[in-house]
Amino acid sequence: MAAFIHNIATIVPEHFYKQEFLRNRMKEYIGNGKTSQRIIHRIYSKSGINKRHTVINDFDKNGSARFFFEKDGSLNTPSTGTRNKYYTQKAKELFVATARKTIQQSSSISKEDITHVITVSCTGFFAPEPGFEIIKKLDLSASTQRFHLGFMGCFAAFPAMKMAKSFAESNSNANILVVCLELCSIHLQNSTSPDNLISASVFGDGAAGMLINHTKPKQNGYELNQFSTSIADGSEQDMAWSIGDTGFDMVLSSYVPDIIESNLPQALAPLLANYQLKPEQIKHWAIHPGGRAILDKVEQSYSLDESQLASSRATLAEYGNMSSATILFVLDDLLKRPETEKDETVLAMAFGPGLTMESSLLTKITQR
């Protein structure tokens, strides 16, 4: 039995800042010397990002909230508890809004049809978990099954899709709602360490949802064909995510793009072999835009043309890296682009702590 994504919906917080503005704010408040200011200027200017959204509105001196920046202009360092409390407040609202939008945009699945809710997030915690909030606020059936994938990082949408695919294939009545949400901006660190500076330059906030079942969609969607998981040996220290006293601490080594590049062949080999595909036969590459250098490495490794990574680069430019939600923004952008061939092949891939590389082959289904 097959499994299909029926539609994808995305939501971002109303507040957003241009990358140039954030660069200058970071140079003003984080850069404590000419060297760190030069580093900040370079990584922000070369990021491939135009703007990022956030639930925090006091990056602007006229903002009303006082989370990072005090009224006197000094920089505050909130505790992990303070950050998680704010996450809980904002995440509950956005999880529900994203779930509602996802269902409303479906032409074939209503809220009464939902049998499973899978939620994904790595930027905060609360219990009952987000699925409970969605079921309560959307008045879904109390018997709806709930699952939460937490603290997995940027690749977590893939385990969620695999879980949903399994449910859909084993139960013809299953209709699965998946919502990925990340509020990365609440974990900004007052630090000039390279890892923290790189993290601060790319991460933003956003959420995305999708509906999955075993029937072919009546609107534009995807067929979930096959998944593959790979771990880059000896790379655990190059990408990691831990809980500190002042928020979550991200380890994001500058070697990550090179590690991904060297491990691409082994990560993609199972998918290509099982479908007897060569890389040049893949129409679209929906690559998680963890950073501009990652996209550049993938493009160079497989001699891709500009159009094949267009959705990934567009997502990076408009939103930055929103961790687990980002790949759904990429797939949503791709779904809205004109189809040149029937049933185009899509290779989707994301990377996260481990260094874990998750990939999938999908078929883009467009209603003609």
Rank of each mutant, 00 (worst) to 15 (best):
W241C: 05
K216A: 15
A317T: 03
P338K: 12
T345Q: 12
I259M: 10
P279I: 03
G221K: 06
S324K: 11
L268G: 03
E223F: 05
D332W: 02
E341C: 11
D305T: 12
N220A: 14
H214C: 13
R313S: 05
V330Q: 02
Y275V: 00
I231C: 05
Q300F: 12
T315G: 03
Y275P: 00
V330G: 04
D332R: 12
Q308W: 10
L264P: 07
N213I: 03
F248K: 01
A350T: 14
Q281Y: 10
M322P: 10
D343L: 13
D245V: 09
I212L: 11
M322L: 15
N213K: 14
S230K: 06
E341Q: 15
D333K: 05
T246G: 00
Q219I: 12
A240F: 11
M250K: 04
E236R: 07
K297E: 13
L328H: 09
F227D: 09
A310H: 01
T229C: 03
S230W: 06
G221P: 14
Q226S: 14
S262F: 09
L309I: 10
N321F: 08
A269W: 03
A314V: 01
K336S: 14
V330C: 07
E223Q: 15
L295Q: 03
Q219A: 08
H288I: 11
N213Y: 02
P338H: 09
H288S: 11
S235H: 02
Y222P: 07
P289D: 05
G244N: 09
P289Y: 04
L268C: 06
I212H: 13
Q308R: 14
K342P: 13
M250P: 02
I287N: 06
D332Q: 15
E299W: 03
S235T: 08
S303I: 11
T315R: 00
I327H: 08
E318H: 05
T315E: 03
F329L: 11
A348Y: 09
I327Y: 07
H288Q: 07
Y302W: 15
S235N: 06
K342W: 13
L316D: 04
S301C: 08
M239E: 00
G290P: 00
G320T: 02
S323L: 10
E341W: 02
A348D: 06
S301M: 07
D238W: 01
